[in-house]
Amino acid sequence: MTTSIGDARIRVPDRISRGDLITVNSIISHPMDTGFFRTAEGQPIPAFFIKDVVVTYGDQEVARFEWTSGISRDPVLSFTIKADREAPLTMVWSDNQGGVFQQSVNIAFISA
């Protein structure tokens, strides 16, 4: 495993038809530190977590997820989207130390 903070993946179904309700699965690599723990040397580990996830479909913001450090490390998130147009689906994760991570997939319909 050579993942670094902010590595993200989004998975959508292989075959999508217009109007389908599709499930979008996502995962991002992030420690999600609460700020309550210390290292083995006794140094406090500062809070470091993703505070929001914004989902845009085409040019429309379709969902925004506000998180706290109560989300588990390497956060997974899955939700549904009504696939009514061919457009990129973009997710932007922002953490409390200014990190911004982006990943997108293209929603394209199978030619019938």
């Binding site: 309550f36 997974v76 009514d84």
Partner: peptide, 26 residues
């Protein structure tokens, strides 16, 4: 009884199509 009891807030629009959201929490 979590330190931050209000753990998450999701803001949705009709394009989401249905409420079916999964994640993992502490």
């Amino acid at each position: 009884f979590n330190p931050d009891a209000h753990l998450a807030a999701y803001h949705l629009t009709p394009t989401v199509g249905s409420v079916s959201i999964s994640t993992r929490i502490k």
